[in-house]
Write a protein that binds this DNA or RNA. Structure first.
Lengths: 222, 222
DNA sequence: ACCTGAACACCGTTCAAGT
DNA sequence: ACCTGAACACCGTTCAAGT
């Protein structure tokens, strides 16, 4: 007679765990999302989840990947501004539909494959639309915050001491050609902490001046 | 002989708790910051903290307020672009010096007094520099992400059902004149959920077009 | 007024065990 | 191959008590 949670239990798998986790976070917020509560909702012992997800962090990364998957299906028009606008608005819609995603995104310390795929799609839209490489690079920085809703510089700066840094860099051309292409523009030798900070500062000021100049023009046109 | 943690204990107070919490988060990240560990570092029982801080959330808000205090001291030049640039760069420096702040900011669901003070200072710099009210309003939205490092729309949208909404709104003119001034520009009757979403959408697209137009100009000038 | 100790209801994750 | 139960080392916060 106890009608608590799910009655059917259609055999767990990663996708089911992730979709259920997304639904739970949508309904109750990430703060309330715990492995134990999610397991209970799935009518399963807490440790059953760990067969399909290596940790809670892995689960959170998987949840974000789920959101970004939808965005990747945005069709291409061949015009970079229109393509870019559509993709960015699609990303924004996804993040707004799942308000917890912003908080989760800003707590991640590593770029996941899903995030890199997503960025690569954006860069691809610009390059295929004929935008020069250097301007494409700048544009990614200008738009960074506006897509994710947080500052990507903070985790683009993978410390050089991290051994996974070199692996990630060498793997770039294979999975993310477009990212590799704009990275080649700045990659003279190793990027130290100082250099990378200088680069970030440059990009930030570029974006800031762009915005301020635009506003000033509006003002003078009035 | 056990040299664990602090030896002196100069009587707890709110400021001491907050500065120590900031130092702890700087050193170990917010993930590692717990009431128990902070108490241990201060050489005090966990519950001693609760005399100076009402909850962990209150402590996190206090920590952010501490960072924003420094920014408020930015001197004024009378030129809105220069004043704005300085304040934004000062904010950014503060957030970068304390990397945990972005994550904490994006987990807050309410604007605190400290955040409103900060925004009010920015709006004040623009209005006093002669920028029209409506353009000042737009500029705040364009710059939103770039200051905080996340999208302020998400928590500017206080639900109308929240009783504290009206209180906050009526208290605005007293503490935050400049914010009240730009709010008056859109505040025709109550702002429902639909209207506020439409407004956010408009601001988002305004910012996006501004950036894209700026980039396009760079491209053509090449 | 300020701090303590024990307790409550939680966490993520391990390990050995079940089927 | 997939799931369970008990256990470990944690959480934030309450309450009654100490000084």
């Amino acid at each position: 007679m106890a009608g608590s949670g799910q009655v059917r239990r259609p055999r767990l798998n990663r996708h089911l765990v992730l979709t259920e986790a997304v639904a739970f976070a949508d309904a109750n917020g990430v703060g309330a999302l715990s492995m134990r509560r999610l397991a209970q909702q799935l009518g399963v012992a807490p440790m059953a989840l760990y067969k399909h997800v290596t940790s809670k962090d892995d689960m959170l990364d998987g949840m974000l990947a789920l959101l970004l998957e939808d965005v990747r299906e945005t069709p291409s028009t061949g015009q970079w501004r229109e393509d870019l606008r559509r993709r960015i608005l699609a990303t924004r819609s996804a993040l707004i539909e799942h308000p917890w995603s912003q908080e989760v995104l800003s707590s991640r310390r590593q770029m996941t494959a899903a995030m890199l795929d997503h960025l690569d799609g954006l860069v691809g839209a610009m390059l295929q639309g004929g935008l020069p490489v250097d301007l494409t690079h700048h544009t990614m920085h200008v738009l960074g915050n506006r897509m994710w809703g947080f500052n990507p510089e903070l985790f683009a700066a993978t410390p050089a001491s991290d051994p996974s840094f070199e692996v990630q860099r060498s793997a770039l051309p294979l999975r993310h050609r477009h990212l590799a292409e704009i990275a080649a523009g700045v990659d003279h030798g190793a990027i130290g902490v100082e250099t990378s900070r200088m680069h970030d500062d440059f990009e930030f000021n570029f974006a800031l001046n762009l915005i301020l100049d635009g506003i000033e023009e509006f003002r003078n046109a009035d």
